[in-house]
Simulated scan of single mutants.
Amino acid sequence: MPTTTSRAPPASRDGAASGVEQTAYEELADAPVTPMALEEFIGRSVHAPQTLRGREVRLLGFVSAGKSPDTPGTSTA
């Protein structure tokens, strides 16, 4: 999960400053596929896209209708 390192100044009328928090992300494990919460993936893609380049990610933490293909006893055929 990300850790907050600093906070930028509040936004000004001319748009020169931003109130977005600056975030530092932990190094990803050296694995063929990295499991990652959807929230972290979105944060990395916006604030630190270089941490995702060349990585295969398995997204976790979102809901969809029906059973998961990972649920025992379900068939994809």
Rank of each mutant, 00 (worst) to 15 (best):
7 R>H: 10
23 T>F: 08
59 L>K: 04
68 S>M: 04
21 E>N: 12
48 A>L: 06
56 E>C: 08
77 A>I: 10
37 A>S: 11
20 V>W: 03
39 E>N: 09
47 H>K: 12
76 T>N: 01
3 T>F: 13
28 L>C: 03
64 S>R: 01
4 T>G: 06
9 P>V: 11
52 L>Q: 02
36 M>P: 10
17 A>F: 14
11 A>L: 06
25 Y>E: 00
34 T>N: 09
62 F>S: 10
33 V>L: 07
9 P>T: 14
57 V>K: 06
15 G>T: 03
66 G>D: 00
37 A>D: 12
21 E>Q: 15
4 T>N: 04
19 G>C: 02
71 T>Q: 08
44 R>M: 13
20 V>E: 09
9 P>S: 12
10 P>Q: 15
38 L>P: 00
61 G>V: 00
72 P>V: 07
44 R>K: 13
51 T>N: 09
59 L>Y: 04
16 A>I: 15
56 E>P: 00
4 T>S: 05
29 A>D: 07
36 M>E: 08
12 S>L: 10
7 R>Y: 04
9 P>A: 14
24 A>H: 13
9 P>H: 13
9 P>N: 11
4 T>R: 10
19 G>I: 03
69 P>C: 09
42 I>L: 06
46 V>P: 02
52 L>M: 02
46 V>N: 04
1 M>A: 15
77 A>T: 14
75 S>I: 07
8 A>H: 12
68 S>L: 02
55 R>A: 13
38 L>N: 04
31 A>N: 08
45 S>I: 11
42 I>W: 07
7 R>W: 03
45 S>K: 13
74 T>C: 01
19 G>M: 07
55 R>V: 07
71 T>N: 07
36 M>V: 08
74 T>V: 01
73 G>V: 00
58 R>Q: 09
56 E>I: 06
43 G>K: 01
3 T>I: 12
54 G>K: 01
54 G>Y: 00
64 S>C: 00
46 V>S: 02
49 P>T: 06
28 L>M: 09
74 T>S: 00
18 S>V: 06
37 A>V: 09
61 G>K: 03
26 E>Y: 11
4 T>F: 09
3 T>Q: 10
2 P>T: 13
54 G>Q: 03
40 E>W: 05
4 T>Q: 10
33 V>P: 08
25 Y>Q: 03
39 E>Q: 11
73 G>T: 01
